[in-house]
């Protein structure tokens, strides 16, 4: 059963781009290269004007039909890993976020105009999606204690879980995220996640 829903836009001005994540996404870039630094600066500007982050989430009850099954309200998920991640949480947040189609348009444009900028912009926007994901996590948990978030396609949770998950949280209407036949999300800089809430009595 869904207990609470959340949805809205996130102002890019309120969430910075994390340097560590950016460098990680740039293949372990260590800094001190003026050419790359210049590109990063330029792409950061493009990113902040192209991004229109949106997110939606639900707080839902969790049950565990067996030791390799998790039920969040949209069908049983067969996964030992997710079970280990969540058990014995009775509640979990299921959420999705996207940087929006403006970022995809910029990516496509750069892929045709400058490979170097494309590479850096792609890394930056992936990093920024993680930053927005952190922001969603912060907004959701407040003072509460939660488990590390977990995404479909990771470990033994099938990527196909995306379809019922997105439909359960009404992500298409609320965020514009759609799925291809192969269960890839569009806009491409989007993340879905499941995050258990620690029981108060434990």
């Amino acid at each position: 059963m869904i207990l609470k829903t959340f949805a809205g836009g996130i102002d890019p001005a309120s969430v910075g781009l994390s340097q560590n994540e950016t460098r990680f996404r740039l293949g372990g870039y260590a800094g001190h290269d003026d050419i790359t630094d210049g590109l990063i600066k330029k792409c950061e500007k493009t990113l902040f004007s192209a991004a229109a982050p949106r997110w939606c989430a639900v707080l839902t009850e969790v049950s565990y039909p067996s030791e390799d099954k998790v039920e969040l309200g949209f069908g049983e998920i067969h996964s030992r890993d997710l079970y280990k991640n969540l058990y014995p949480c009775r509640l979990a947040y299921v959420f999705a976020l996207t940087l929006g189609s403006g970022v995809d348009r910029a990516l496509r444009r750069l892929s045709k105009t400058s490979e170097a900028e494309f590479y850096v912009f792609d890394a930056l926007s992936s990093a920024y999606a993680e930053d927005i994901c952190d922001e969603c996590e912060r907004l959701l948990k407040g003072e509460g204690k939660t488990r590390p978030r977990y995404s479909p396609g990771y470990g033994d949770v099938a990527l196909e879980t995306q379809r019922p998950l997105l439909s359960y949280i009404n992500a298409q209407r609320l965020t514009g995220i759609t799925l291809s036949d192969a269960c890839l999300m569009s806009p491409s800089k989007s993340i879905t996640a499941i995050m258990g809430v620690n029981n108060e009595d434990t």
């Binding site: 740039l26 293949g27 870039y29 290269d33 050419i35 790359t36 400058s114 170097a116 590479y119 850096v120």
Partner: peptide
């Protein structure tokens, strides 16, 4: 001593 973005820019 150089990173991928520079490599790509040089190629361009």
């Amino acid at each position: 001593r150089a990173y991928l973005p520079q490599l790509i820019m040089s190629a361009e």
